[in-house]
Each structure stands twice: as structure tokens, then as C-alpha cells.
Nucleic acid binder design. Structure first.
Length: 840
RNA sequence: GGGCAAUUAGCUCAGUUGGUUAGAGCAUCUGCCUUACAAGCAGAGGGUCUGCGGUUCGAGUCCGUAAUUGCCCACCA
């Protein structure tokens, strides 16, 4: 027997292992149509946060729904090796043990990374189990496993041969802490307090100087020119002359370049081609030398003269002091400007000239843009507006720097011997070849995830069956990083989109709308919430609280009310189970109006639920089923059923509706629905998760009875309202126009019904075809009279509005006939009600 | 600078293709321990849907415009 209170812990116990061991998560039934989703692989180093909880909840809802609908569902799990993130953590752990990465050596370091992976991967799997997600563990992959490595290498080699991947010297974002290149997306810009330092660059052989404003004086050792705008009258005369680099004394030319904006600063820009991407371009246009003045760890190198060995910051300080002493510093103008910082290590990114591998984006992006114009072939974003995020990125993308100066990752399959470069899946023949030390950007391998996990480049059955994936679920902040890359990679490599639908959800914020972060200390651990409210409550809340794609402000109070909702379902089930214990077969031969009414409501809500599920509108599913369960099922039908509880037909209806509710809710709250399903007297399947999702049964829709019972309910509500509003005691005598049993029982009128009017105060209640007069002793207070007046006034206003509307000829002519008819009926009802109110 | 959103009850949010009197939860007020549930039940109050203009018989919904807020991208020598 069920406890009177829902106890999440006991309900959730053991079920996950039971499902898993029964093989319910596994795909492969060839007699069914396939449906596939690949999980966005979480970083192996990480801990699942609420965002992950939301992400996997949504996917599990989709997959459980499709599974129950009879699809052969594959939900493929896996994790990401997260090159820089993991490497940073392992480096730190070794450092704490007094071990230096480079002294330790590549092989031992990688083995430490694998240890870390195995240690933390287990945590993630435990948390997945807590979330109840039905992933097929037999297909689990890792972005750095052997198969994926093969795929990554093949793509690299093919791209190289096609000329899509190239090696070049560019200004890249350099992380001096991790000592690696970063892609644009791995750089976060922060507003910081800085200054414009105005320096004197003397014109050669004169005592005239140019006022050069810079935020980065320490890069002046790398200056190889000064640029002015060719149209700038102030400086035209200096073009072609030389200026003397302060402190250094080296002569560099003044060049004319549009990059110099006369409106900005002093209109004179120092050009440092090796330390600024714009200057690099200017340098190319004017054939300037590129002088790198820093070491990879952002200390100054020998080109910085006496400042060699200092850090960027030390050098700036010392240099400014010297400049000032020599009278070369004109002024310091404080300003805030945004400066790039490494997403992972947090240090200031140094634009740095270096040799890196790049993916040429042009043709790849064009193909995506073209595909997105074709409705049959494009990736369908849900909500649709996120498609713009993708296309906008594709229209404005830069070549992608894919090499990382790390060890943990897919090693670049390139070998060098002197000036020779060899790119291939295996090492070249002959001696003297040295493999590139670098690895690939993590996103290069995760971009292949939708198909590399299915065995590509082999022509596997899985690839044939589950690719393209049906759906991908992720948050909008990951569209640039990952979604975009999966799309162009899949389209170029496999010739098709990676997935048909891309369901985008929002981010989770705290109650005040701030991002959850360690520094604010406002993070919430999903595991704590599961401990307190159960995972069903957490899943339901995360999946249904907000419209698709919008951010969710996490509010623990809502989790409490979700718990209450589950408790309501629990208790409604308890009532049903208590009453249908002896039910052994479904009998629907003498349906009452009320039975027909709830069946109709149920079929309608089912129909609507399926439509919303198919459009991933889980918030609407939540709202509609909630209203159905609370109002129609619990408040009304269960109350009706209490008067009729021995009827086999009513029992059958209770059974049908309850089991339908359980199935509709199962994807959202798998544990509690499984628990209750297990107690049903009639079961078609061993587990609800492999049972059939209900289908709409048109023969159980009874429009007329639905209307009849709706009218009864409306009357019941009006009656209660009048009694409540007027504080009328329970035993007030009532004369009523109907002998409808349900109405009489619901209103508890059995002992107070009279047939003759009484000569005391009374209220008249009228709704639809039902009418009642309530007699009471108490004097009518002034307050109550005012209330009545207000009701009459409101009603009169409404009638006037409606009359006006119906008098409008163009409304009657153009609005749908049914609507006009309904307006007329409502008007009639209102007029009748008004009369009865006045009668009281 | 470019782009994308948002603005609805005290708070957090819903509101499908325009169509009765705009809905939930929490909070507030009134009355109830009515044997599924008091973490409950029966009711109530609370909104000129950010402002202005337009299209329409009809606008929270479509168009324009202003304000405010948020996010993303680029740039900031």
C-alpha cells in the first residue's frame, strides 16, 4: 500500500539499475524505426551542474517519449577529453606534488591524464545515473578513444590534401600561462582600467616629434613603423620620413595606412606586426619586418634590450619610468578598454606571432549557408530564432586556429624534416622525421561527434542507421563553439547535416538573474536538490518552467511546489489504486455522463500533449497536463467517482485515465510513474518505460456529454462561490431546480433541500440550465450589498460591450460564424444572469 | 559600432497560426481537519500586457517608433 506522502528516496531506489540491467536503454531492434541523439559530451574533468541537469533532462524526455512511441532509440553517451581544461588541472595536480610537466615527460604526463580521466569519468556516470537518464552505455565513447582518433586523423589528412587545412604564421591569441594558442572563442574580453600612454617619436634629424598614443608601451621594441591616415592633413608631410623609436633609437618609417583613424587617439599608430592582428595586416601591406619581443611565457626577450627577462608588467613599469626620465612620455591618459583573457587560465591573452595550423573557413561556411536555405536539408533550430545565430557566425567567421601547444589531445599528424612537411595517417618512411609536438583543439574532435561515435570513417551499420542524428540538445552559448563546427564538418565530410533538429535551451541563473559562478558562491549542486526533492521534481522543474530557449532563474521554492505536484499525483494514484484493486478487465458498457466527460477531456489533453511533445514545447505539456490533473481529474472526476466507486465502468475509467497520465508524465518524472505503474492491477508491460505511449482514441470523445458536465461544474462553482462570498452556513436551506445526483452530492445538499420557498433572505444562483435558491437567516450586510452592486455593474458593462460588438455589421460579416454565434449565446446567458441577480 | 532578444499580477514565468472577461506557481485575504492529499480543500482580491502611432470588424499577439534591460559578435592602436 502506498504511503500517504510521496517519498522520493524510496521511490527512486533501485529503479535505475533495474532499467539498465533489463537492457531497456539499449538500441538495436531492427524491426523499429531508428531515432538517435548523441549527448553533448561533458568535460571529463567536470562535475555536472544545473545546466547539465537541464540538458540531460530534456534529452531524456525526448528519448523516453520516442522509445514509448515505438522507435528504436539510441541515446549515445560520452565525454570530452577537454584538452586545455584537463591539462591545466593535471598540471596543477603535478605541480602540487612538486612535479614539473616538462621534466616529467610527455608519456608519463599523458598517463597521469588518463588516470584523471578514469577517476572523474566515474563521477559523471554516477551523476547520470542519479538523473535517471536512459543512455545506451554499450555505445559510450570518449573524444580521445582510438576510433575517434582515427576519425580525427583522417579528417586532418583529407583536409590537408584538399587545401582546407594549412600551416601559417599568424597573430594568434596566446595564453602565456598554458603556453598555447587559443581560438577566438576561447578568449573572453573584460573591461579593465588602463591608460593611453603618449610617447614622443622624434622625426629623424629634427626636434619635431609625433605624439603616438598606445596602451601597450612595452611592445614598442617590436615597432617596425608608425602609421598615419593618408588623408590626415596633420601628418601628410611626414609620410615616407623616418622616426626614431624611443629608448631604442632605431629608425622606422612613417607609412600611410587606412588603419590609422584620424578621429581616434592622436591619429598616429605605432605598428607592431608581431604583436597585434591589425598591425600584422598593416605590416603585410607595407612589407614590414615582424619582430617578436616576448618569450612564450610573456617575459621580454633579447629584442627588449635591457628589459630582457622581465614580465610584460615589469617591463611596462620600468620602461615608463625610463621614458619619463628621458622626457619621452608626454602624458598618461587613463581609459578603460577591453582586454582578452584566456577562458581557461584567466590570464591576459598575448597576441603573438607564431606558426599554427588553421582550417580555412570560406568554402565550409558557404556550404552551410546554402544548406540552411533548403528546408529539406537544413538543421532545424528550436526555437527557430537561433538559426540566425548560426548563420550570422558563418557569415562572419575567421579561419580557425586548431593547433594547441598541449600534450593532452589528438596529436597533429604532421612530420617535419628540415623544410619538408609530411601529413599522413602514419609516420613517413625514412629517418629524420620529427612529428609535430602539438595537439588539436578539443572542438576539432567534438565537431565530429555525431558520426565519429557511430564508427565513421568505416561504413558501419550504426552509421547507416543512426546518422544523421534526429536531434541535438544544447544551450545557446555553445552554438558558436560546437554546433556551428559540427554542422560544417558534417556537411563537408559526410555530405549531410549532422542532425535534423537542434533543440536549444537557455542558461540557468540564480534567483536575481545572475550567472551562477564560483566567485559569487551562488552555485547550486543538482545532487543536493535531488537529495532534498527527488530527481523527478528537479527534472520536471527544469524542463517545464520556462519556454524553450529562455534562461531559467533557479528558485528553490518552485522545486517545493513541484514536489507538491508530485505528491498530488501520488495521492490521486493512491485513491485510484485503493478503489480499483479488484479490477481485472476493462468494462466501459455503462458510461455515465461524467465518465464520458473525463474520457473526452483526457483524449483532448493527450492529443494536445502529443502535438506539443513533437514540437519540444515541454513547458506547454507541463502546463496543460497540470491543469488537467489538478482540475479535471482530481478536483472533479475523482470527486464524482467517490459517489460511484463500486461501478466496474467507473473503475475502468479511473484506470484508463490514471495510466494515461502516468505515461504522459513518464518522460518527465520516470521514477514516480514507474513506481505507481508497478502497482496497477492491469499491466501490459513489465515497466512503464517500455510500455506504449497512448494514442488518441476518437471513439472516446463525447462532445455533448462534455458540454453537459461542463455546465454542471459551472453551476457547482457558482453555487459555492455565492455561499463562500456571503459566508452562508453549511446547513442553509436550498431549493434547487434539478434532481441531478452529481450536483446534489457535490454540493452536499441531501439534508438541506426544500421544495417550498421560505420567507427569509435568499440568494439566487443560476448557471446554464440549473438554478438554486439559498435561504439564510443572517441579515445582509452593507458590504454584501456593495458586492452585489458591483457584480451587477460588471455584468451590465459586459452586456453593453457585447451588444455593441454584435451591432457592428462588419464584425458580424467578417468574423467566423461560430464565434459570432458564441457571442450571441454568451449575451443571452449574461442577460439571464443579470435578471436573476436583480431578483434576489 | 553590428546583431539578437526581452518588457504581461507584489515576485518568477506561460500565453500555438490575431478571436469570449489575458493564465499558473509563490505571496496576500476569507472559510474549511469534507477518510487520496492540511506540503491539502473550497473561494476571493490583484493586470489601461513599457509608452506612442499604424494595419484590422477585432492586437498581449502583426508593422513602425521611442524608452529601459539583457545577451552575443566585432573594435577599442
Amino acid at each position: 500500500m502506498l504511503e500517504t506522502k510521496y517519498d522520493a528516496k524510496s521511490v527512486e531506489e533501485n529503479k535505475y539499475d533495474y532499467w539498465k540491467e533489463s537492457g531497456y536503454f539499449k538500441c538495436g531492434n531492427k524491426s523499429k524505426n531508428p531515432y538517435s541523439i548523441v549527448i553533448p559530451p561533458p568535460n571529463v574533468t567536470g562535475k555536472l551542474h544545473l545546466g547539465h541537469a537541464m540538458n540531460v533532462s530534456i534529452q531524456d524526455i525526448i528519448i523516453r517519449y520516442k522509445r514509448m512511441q515505438g522507435f528504436d532509440t539510441l541515446w549515445l553517451p560520452g565525454m570530452d577529453h577537454a584538452a586545455i581544461a584537463t591539462e591545466a588541472k593535471v598540471v596543477k595536480r603535478l605541480k602540487d606534488q612538486g612535479i614539473d610537466k616538462y621534466e616529467y615527460g610527455r608519456e608519463k604526463f599523458l598517463s597521469a591524464c588518463w588516470d584523471w580521466t578514469h577517476e572523474f569519468g566515474g563521477n559523471i556516470r554516477d551523476q547520470w545515473a542519479k538523473m535517471g537518464i536512459s543512455v545506451d552505455y554499450s555505445r559510450e565513447r570518449f573524444t580521445l578513444d582510438e576510433g575517434l582518433n582515427k576519425a580525427v586523423t583522417k579528417v586532418f589528412v583529407d583536409y590537408y590534401n584538399e587545401g582546407i587545412i594549412y600551416r601559417g604564421e599568424r597573430i594568434i591569441n596566446w595564453d602565456p600561462e598554458a603556453q598555447t594558442a587559443l581560438s577566438n572563442e576561447e578568449v573572453l574580453y573584460k573591461e579593465i582600467e588602463g591608460a593611453f600612454y603618449h610617447l614622443k617619436y622624434y622625426i629623424e634629424g629634427t626636434d619635431e616629434y609625433l605624439d603616438v598614443a598606445t596602451t601597450r608601451p612595452e611592445t614598442l621594441f617590436g615597432d617596425t613603423a608608425v602609421a598615419v591616415n593618408p588623408e590626415d592633413e596633420r601628418y601628410k608631410k611626414y609620410i615616407g620620413k623616418n622616426v626614431s623609436l624611443p629608448i631604442v633609437g632605431k629608425l622606422i618609417p612613417v607609412v600611410a595606412d587606412l588603419h590609422a583613424d584620424p578621429e581616434f587617439g592622436t591619429g598616429v599608430v605605432k605598428i607592431t606586426p608581431a604583436h597585434d592582428p591589425n598591425d600584422f595586416e598593416v605590416g603585410n601591406r607595407h612589407n614590414l619586418e615582424r619582430v617578436v619581443v616576448m618569450n612564450p611565457d610573456a617575459t621580454m626577450n633579447e629584442d627588449a634590450g635591457k628589459y630582457v627577462g622581465m614580465t610584460r608588467e615589469e617591463c611596462r613599469e620600468a620602461l615608463l619610468k625610463d621614458l619619463e626620465e628621458q622626457g619621452l612620455l608626454i602624458k598618461v591618459e587613463p581609459m578603460t578598454h577591453s582586454v582578452g583573457h584566456s577562458e581557461r587560465t584567466g590570464v591576459m591573452v598575448e597576441p603573438y606571432l607564431s606558426k599554427q595550423w588553421f582550417v580555412k573557413m570560406g568554402t565550409l561556411a558557404e556550404r552551410v549557408l546554402k544548406t540552411q536555405e533548403n528546408n529539406e536539408e537544413k538543421v532545424n533550430f528550436v526555437p527557430e530564432k537561433f538559426e540566425k545565430t548560426l548563420t550570422h557566425w558563418m557569415e562572419n567567421c575567421y579561419d580557425w586556429c586548431i593547433s594547441r601547444q598541449l600534450w593532452w589531445g589528438h596529436r597533429i599528424p604532421a612530420w617535419y624534416k628540415g623544410e619538408e612537411v609530411y601529413v599522413g595517417e602514419t609516420a613517413p618512411e625514412g629517418d629524420g622525421w620529427i612529428q609535430d609536438e602539438d595537439v588539436l583543439d578539443t572542438w576539432f574532435s567534438s565537431a565530429l561527434w555525431p558520426f565519429s561515435t557511430l564508427g565513421w570513417p568505416e561504413k558501419t551499420e550504426d552509421m547507416e542507421r543512426y546518422f544523421p542524428n534526429d536531434c541535438l540538445v544544447t544551450a545557446y552559448d555553445i552554438i558558436f563553439f560546437w554546433v556551428a563546427r559540427m554542422v560544417f564538418q558534417a556537411e563537408h565530410i559526410t555530405g549531410t547535416r549532422p542532425f535534423k533538429d537542434c533543440v536549444i535551451h537557455g542558461l540557468i541563473r540564480d534567483k536575481q538573474g545572475r550567472k551562477m559562478s564560483k566567485s559569487l558562491g551562488n552555485g547550486v549542486d543538482p545532487m543536493d536538490m535531488i537529495e532534498k526533492y527527488g530527481v523527478d521534481a528537479l527534472r520536471y522543474y527544469l524542463a517545464t518552467d520556462v519556454a524553450p530557449g529562455t534562461d531559467l532563474r533557479f528558485d528553490e521554492e518552485k522545486l517545493t511546489s513541484t514536489w507538491n505536484y508530485i505528491n498530488k499525483i501520488w495521492n490521486a494514484s493512491r485513491f485510484v489504486l485503493l478503489n480499483i484493486e479488484d479490477l481485472d478487465s476493462i468494462k466501459l458498457d455503462d458510461l455515465t455522463d461524467e465518465d464520458k466527460w473525463i474520457l473526452t477531456k483526457y483524449e483532448k489533453i493527450l492529443d494536445s500533449t502529443i502535438k506539443h511533445m513533437d514540437k519540444y514545447e515541454f513547458n506547454l505539456v507541463g502546463m496543460e497536463t497540470y491543469n488537467f490533473i489538478y482540475d479535471d481529474f482530481c478536483s472533479h472526476y475523482i470527486e464524482f467517482a467517490k459517489f460511484n466507486s463500486s461501478s466496474p465502468t467507473t473503475k475502468s475509467v479511473l484506470y484508463i485515465v490514471l495510466s494515461g497520465i502516468l505515461k504522459m508524465l513518464h518522460p518527465f518524472m520516470p521514477f514516480v510513474t514507474e513506481e505507481i505503474y508497478g502497482m496497477l492491477p492491469i499491466k501490459t508491460h513489465e515497466s512503464i518505460m517500455i510500455s506504449d505511449y497512448p494514442k488518441v482514441d476518437e471513439t472516446k470523445i463525447f462532445e455533448e456529454e462534455e458540454r453537459v458536465v461542463d455546465n454542471k461544474i459551472e453551476f457547482i462553482k457558482s453555487f459555492r462561490n455565492v455561499k463562500n462570498e456571503n459566508n452562508i452556513s453549511k446547513d442553509a436551506k436550498v431549493m434547487i431546480s434539478t434532481d441531478d445526483e452529481i450536483i446534489i452530492k457535490m454540493l452536499k445538499l441531501q439534508d438541506v433541500m426544500i421544495t417550498e420557498p421560505m420567507d427569509i433572505h435568499s440568494y439566487n444562483v443560476k448557471a446554464n440550465e440549473y438554478e438554486a435558491t439559498i435561504y439564510f437567516e443572517k441579515q445582509v450586510t452593507e458590504e454584501e450589498l456593495k458586492l452585489k452592486e458591483k457584480q451587477i455593474k460588471d455584468l451590465e458593462a459586459s452586456i453593453a460591450r457585447r451588444k455593441n460588438l454584435l451591432a457592428n455589421e462588419s464584425y458580424v460579416a467578417k468574423a467566423p460564424e461560430a464565434l459570432v454565434q458564441k457571442e450571441r449565446e454568451t449575451l443571452a446567458k449574461e442577460e439571464e444572469l443579470l435578471n436573476s441577480l436583480k431578483d434576489r
